[in-house]
Simulated assay, not measured.
Amino acid sequence: MAASVCAFILALYALCGSAAGSGGLSAPTHVRLTSYNMDLVLRWDPPEGTTDVLTYTAEYRSLATGYNNGCTNTSALKCEFTSSSITVHGNYTGRVRAHRGAESSSWVESNVIVMDRHTFIGPPDVTLHVTGTSLEVSIKDPVFKHSELRETYTSATYNITYWKSSSKEEVETMSDMMQDRVVLSDLDPLSEYCVQVQIITNMNPRPSEYSDVVCERTGDVDAAPWVAAVVAFVVMATVVALVVTLVVYWKQISKFLCPEVVLPPHFKESLLLNDPNSIYPVSLPSEHCDHVSIVADHRTEEEGGCSTQPDTSQDGG
């Protein structure tokens, strides 16, 4: 009796479990882990056959650690992992599951990628500078999310392809260039040339994307633009030097151009004596004075000297 009851309970539990499993939330599909310029992004598609509004939780881990949270309850179909613990030489995998209210799907794991081997390298930025009949190709590496291209790939090189725009079938290639500035010489004067650059790395089997096609017209064979550049530099340097000298030595220069005149004392006296605007008479040193004696009240007040008073002593007599 007890055995039959137990069998009935187990059968009922299995039936209920299978019914619940068949009606549960389906998991996301096409889960893949990708990398572009050393970022780390998990992408996925919604569960098949669902039209409900779902949210997702995504995580990632390296081969040496457990899963780390990346995105929680996001409605997007991707999650970018931005942790500073991600390294350009690490091996990573991701997983995601869907949520509908309190219901969650099972986890779905992605592929494993090795960052420096599987990342897609974007195109470099290329600019051209004309120097007579030569073109200088200036190359700027794409910006990586973690580290830099030259730090990640120590032997990265450039493949430079160029051609005359009027005859694209005649394509020239310069391979394995290490410098980010390369001069294309011996080009035809007054002709338009186009350039494209691709990055080749030692660790990543895929080359980078090609840069945009950049075109520039060469100059005349007799043109010497460096002369104008040198002249402009000399003129600017001269102007700057003059301004600096004027500022630093202004006191000395002003004293030299406008010196302060100091007259000797006897010159000042002479000028003062000859001043026609002066209202005070000035006695010259050569003026002669007679000796006059003045007597008043039978007493002599002054002897010897110049008198400025009239002599009244004779009026009384």
Rank of each mutant, 00 (worst) to 15 (best):
F144W: 04
E172V: 01
V195K: 01
V143I: 06
T154E: 14
Q198F: 00
F144T: 02
D188M: 14
A156P: 03
Q198R: 02
M177R: 02
L135R: 00
E192G: 06
N204T: 06
V182I: 11
W163G: 06
I200C: 09
Q198T: 01
T173A: 03
S211N: 11
E170N: 07
S166Q: 12
L135E: 03
M178L: 09
D180E: 15
N204E: 15
E172T: 09
V195C: 00
Q198G: 01
S211P: 04
P207F: 12
E148S: 15
T152N: 08
Q179H: 14
T157L: 00
W163A: 09
L190Q: 10
Y162W: 11
V171I: 07
L135Q: 03
E170C: 04
E192R: 08
C194S: 06
C194D: 11
P189R: 12
D141Y: 03
I200S: 08
M178E: 12
W163L: 09
P205C: 10
M203F: 14
S147W: 09
K140E: 03
Y193A: 06
S165I: 11
S165E: 15
P189T: 13
Q179W: 12
Y158L: 08
M174T: 00
V137P: 00
S165D: 08
E170G: 09
Y210C: 11
K145V: 08
S155E: 13
P189C: 07
S166A: 15
M178S: 09
P142G: 04
T157W: 01
T154C: 12
C194K: 06
T157G: 00
E172S: 04
E169N: 14
M203G: 10
P189M: 07
S185V: 14
S185M: 11
V143W: 03
K168S: 05
E209Q: 12
Y153T: 14
I200F: 07
W163E: 05
L190G: 10
V171K: 14
Y193R: 13
S191R: 06
E209C: 07
S138C: 01
E148M: 07
D176T: 02
E172Y: 14
